[in-house]
């Protein structure tokens, strides 16, 4: 299964973190720092694998991809295929690109819940459930609509009721 998904920028600032097992936050932050220190020392055009057992415990592997100012990192165990995980990063980034039209770091910084909604459609409890970015987009749009609806009702009703109570 997939253990963790991390997105961080080239300064080491985390932009998205997801752990599919419970990890205390301090350990999360430490792992992120360790991962970054390994990643930033790697040259361009080398392989996308990093030995992760020292950071995430036995039977853990790590693949990453470097896009512009961001590192996308997937940590997983021997039940996943390394190349498939690289493809999955590609799927994730393509979906983000569709969603935000030419995705850049700021989109990821400012769309916390949407990022999670997208990721949750792809990976569920550490398992890959969806790999088609159109399907993912469909579900995410539905969810966004649903949230907007409920919020709209919320605002209107509240302001109306408040007006009346005066």
């Amino acid at each position: 299964m997939i253990r963790s998904v991390l997105v961080m920028n080239t300064q080491g600032k985390p932009r998205l973190t997801k752990f599919y097992e419970f990890w205390p936050v301090e350990k999360q932050q430490e792992a992120i720092r360790n991962v970054f220190s390994v990643l930033c020392s790697r040259a361009e055009h080398v392989s996308n694998f990093v030995d992760a057992e020292s950071i995430f415990g036995p039977d853990s592997r790590l693949v990453y991809k470097h896009f512009a100012t961001l590192y996308f990192v997937f940590v997983f165990d021997s039940s996943e295929n390394e190349l498939a995980m690289l493809d999955l990063i590609q799927v994730f980034v393509e979906t983000l690109d569709k969603c935000f039209r030419n995705v850049c770091e700021l989109d990821i910084v400012f769309n916390y819940s949407k990022m999670h909604a997208i990721l949750d459609e792809i990976i569920f409890g550490g398992q890959v459930l969806e790999t088609s970015s159109t399907e993912i987009m469909k579900a995410v749009e539905e969810i966004t609509k649903l949230e907007a609806q409920s919020n709209a009702i919320n605002l209107v009703s509240k302001s109306v009721s408040n007006w009346r109570s005066r």
């Binding site: 998205l16 973190t17 997801k18 916390y112 819940s113 949230e147 609806q149 409920s150 009702i153 919320n154």
Partner: peptide, 30 residues
């Protein structure tokens, strides 16, 4: 957000999470 990105411990807010889970509005629930 602060927990996921800045490593803040939010276990103290667990009850509030449960409260919101039972909200009838989808956005709060989520």
């Amino acid at each position: 957000y602060l927990s996921a990105i800045h490593g803040l411990d939010i276990s103290w807010a667990a009850f509030h999470a449960v409260e919101l889970m039972s909200s009838s509005r989808f956005s709060h629930k989520s």
